[in-house]
Measured scan of single mutants.
Amino acid sequence: TGYYDVLGVKPDASDNELKKAYRKMALKFHPDKNPDGAEQFKQISQAYEVLSDEKKRQIYDQ
């Protein structure tokens, strides 16, 4: 599964769309709200870390 799929956004998503999707998913799977969501929360955080950084995103998109 790709990072875009993890966040539920298209590859041409804007920074604002990425942030909005990340916040929505992070709230849904945060371990405090969803004890079984810890692994998914890590994936969401990693996806956002890469896609929100312009240089990392360019490398990922290659």
Rank of each mutant, 00 (worst) to 15 (best):
E54T: 14
Q40L: 14
I44N: 01
Y4V: 02
P35R: 06
P11F: 13
I59V: 13
K20V: 12
D32N: 13
K56Y: 06
V6D: 03
Y4H: 05
D53E: 04
K19H: 10
K24C: 15
K42V: 07
D5M: 09
R23M: 15
Y3F: 11
K55R: 14
Q58F: 11
S52M: 12
Q58K: 13
Q46F: 11
A21G: 04
L18Q: 01
A13C: 14
E49Y: 13
Y4E: 02
I44E: 01
A38N: 07
V6I: 15
K28R: 07
L51W: 00
I59H: 11
Q62T: 08
L27H: 09
I44M: 03
T1D: 10
K42D: 07
K10E: 07
A13M: 01
D5I: 07
V9K: 01
P11Y: 10
V9T: 03
T1V: 15
Y48L: 05
A21C: 06
K33M: 11
Y4N: 04
E54K: 15
K33L: 14
K33E: 06
D32Y: 08
R23Q: 15
K28N: 07
G8C: 12
G2M: 12
S45D: 04
L51A: 00
F29L: 03
K42A: 10
N16A: 15
F29C: 08
F29E: 02
A47M: 00
S45A: 12
N34E: 04
Y60F: 03
D32E: 09
D53I: 03
E17I: 05
Y4D: 04
A26E: 08
K10L: 11
N34V: 06
K42I: 09
A13D: 03
K56I: 05
K42R: 11
Y60M: 04
S52C: 12
P35Q: 07
D61K: 04
L27A: 14
Q40D: 05
D61N: 07
D5S: 09
A21S: 02
D36T: 08
M25H: 07
R57F: 02
R57G: 01
P31W: 07
K28M: 10
S45Y: 11
L51H: 01
L18C: 04
L18V: 14
P35A: 06
L18D: 01
N34H: 09
Q43D: 04
A47I: 06
Y4W: 04
A21I: 05
Q40V: 10
E17R: 01
N34C: 10
A13V: 12
E17Q: 08
K19V: 07
Q62N: 10
D36L: 10
G8L: 04
T1I: 13
D61F: 05
K20H: 10
E17K: 05
P11N: 05
P31D: 05
Q46I: 15
K56Q: 11
F29H: 05
D15A: 15
K33P: 01
D32T: 10
P35V: 06
E17Y: 03
H30E: 06
A38M: 10
Q58L: 12
K56W: 07
T1K: 13
D5C: 15
K19C: 13
P31R: 07
Y48D: 01
M25G: 07
K20W: 08
Y22V: 00
N16D: 15
L51Q: 04
K56S: 10
S45L: 15
L7F: 01
Y22S: 00
K19R: 13
A21M: 00
F41T: 02
K10W: 06
D15F: 15
A13W: 01
A47H: 00
E49Q: 11
V6C: 08
L7R: 00
T1N: 10
Q58G: 08
G2T: 15
R57P: 03
S14N: 10
Q43P: 03
L7P: 00
E49K: 13
D12I: 05
V50K: 05
F29I: 03
Q43K: 14
K56P: 03
F41D: 02
K28S: 06
Y60T: 02
P31I: 07
S14M: 03
D15K: 13
T1E: 07
Q58T: 09
A26K: 09
A38I: 11
A47W: 04
D15G: 11
P31Q: 08
E39A: 09
K24V: 10
D12V: 04
E39I: 08
H30W: 05
Q40H: 12
G8W: 03
P11A: 10
Q62L: 12
A38K: 08
Y4T: 00
A26C: 15
